[in-house]
């Protein structure tokens, strides 16, 4: 049987698309198609990734200009049909700017670019994207300057009540407090899902946690996605 094909949308300034491509092919056991932002159709619609980087130089606001790309218009259309979509880092910023996910990702609390390994607690294991990860706390690298998740108090409560918060920055043993929060995100939020549970956005980079050993948590993240296809 031919391998299934997963789409990765690439913008001018994306820089995690190749890493993601390698991780997806190797650990999801699929082929990939890189879709240029100017394409108004996405041929392979089983699953779509929006990679990290600095789309359009992060001009205006991170992710803002990418939202108007023809490929993103198609992503928005397909999202309404329930296609699984994952945005990582700049991809998460793009999905919030498109209003496919709640909130906004703004300048880190200390206005520094943070680049380090961080522990992340999986707050909701009952999602398409996290149900097969066999750990409660994973270690993923983070690398961003605008990762502070912000939304209104009402929205935050709604996200918590609907179990839409999927990842929170934590300690190794899953403790969630300010000392583990690298960017000032509300409630330590590192990743959320939409209300219909088919769109995931996360700031950490699972595609950068696949290289060094079989224990790397990015591997179980991508392997866990195989059953989506």
């Amino acid at each position: 049987m031919p391998k299934k094909v997963v789409s990765i949308v690439v913008f001018p300034g994306s820089n995690c698309d190749r890493d993601l491509d390698i991780a997806v092919q190797k650990y999801m056991n699929v082929n990939t198609e890189l879709v240029w932002h100017d394409d108004s159709s996405i041929k392979n619609q089983e699953m779509i990734f929006i990679p990290g980087g600095f789309s359009f130089g992060d001009y205006l606001r991170s992710g803002a200009l990418a939202t108007k790309s023809p490929a993103m218009k198609e992503v928005i259309r397909l999202s309404k049909r329930g296609v699984p979509i994952i945005g990582i880092c700049n991809g998460f910023q793009i999905l919030t700017e498109c209003k496919l996910l709640d909130g906004a990702l703004i300048d880190n609390y200390k206005r520094l670019f943070v680049c380090k390994e961080n522990f992340v607690k999986i707050e909701n294991k009952n999602t398409l994207f996290t149900q097969n990860i066999n750990k409660n706390v994973v270690q993923f690298p983070i690398a961003h300057a605008q990762g502070r998740f912000y939304t209104s108090e009402d929205n935050l409560k709604r996200l918590e009540d609907n179990n839409q918060i999927v990842f929170k920055y934590s300690s190794r043993d899953g403790k969630i407090d300010k000392s583990q929060n690298p960017n000032g995100s509300m409630n330590n939020i590192a990743g959320i899902i939409n209300k219909n549970k088919n769109i995931l956005g996360l700031m950490p980079h699972p595609e950068r946690a696949v290289n060094f050993s079989e224990d790397n948590d990015g591997i179980s993240f991508f392997r866990g996605l195989q059953n989506l296809l």
Partner: peptide, 8 residues
């Protein structure tokens, strides 16, 4: 739609 993000 573009110049501002009404959330923030």
């Amino acid at each position: 739609d573009l110049l501002s993000n009404p959330i923030i």
